[in-house]
Amino acid sequence: MDFSRYRKRSPWILHYNAGSCNGCDIEILAALSPRYDLERFGVLNSGNPKQSDIFLVTGPVTYRSRERLVELYNQMPEPKVVIALGSCTCTGGVFRGMYNVEDGIDRYIPVDVYIPGCAASPELIIDGVVQALDILEKKTKERENAKRLYSEPTTENGITDRSNSAQKIGTGGFSPEEMKPNSPERRENEED
């Protein structure tokens, strides 16, 4: 039996803040509140990656939230869609090029819907979620991987090394230099 048409009727969302200013996060709450009432589309804010279909990410991905982002993404069972909520989640926005951010989540996980806006208004969020539902319906149950894998941090001489924790996999990834886009050398080159 084909159940895929029921996917769009029961999207449960998982929200993760990867370093946003929490303007968008508040707007998500507002979208759940009586005026906008996301629940009328069957949306449930489940908060549990294993029971979610839509991954709603805000924020430009700070260094410390990288692994968490990838881990949450990997824990979600397919089919799943990812929504990048807010300008800084899409491209880095105002934080682009700051030393501790990764300029948008699509360096780490594949994104299906980009919602711009600083901050994205509840109307935009609803629009984006509805758009994501159409994509969700078409998805297969094939395994979707993050662009870079998460591995355990290694501990040597009491120092924890987390630099390998978000490694690139396969081809089409980034070169090691590009993996640290905000390294001081590179920024100096840009400024010259």
């Binding site: 449960w12 279909d53 069972p77 149950k141």
Partner: peptide, 13 residues
């Protein structure tokens, strides 16, 4: 019931 059908459709973990 929509939730139920959707859950049937998820990849099992």
């Amino acid at each position: 019931f929509y939730d139920m059908f959707k859950l049937l459709d998820k990849r099992p973990l």
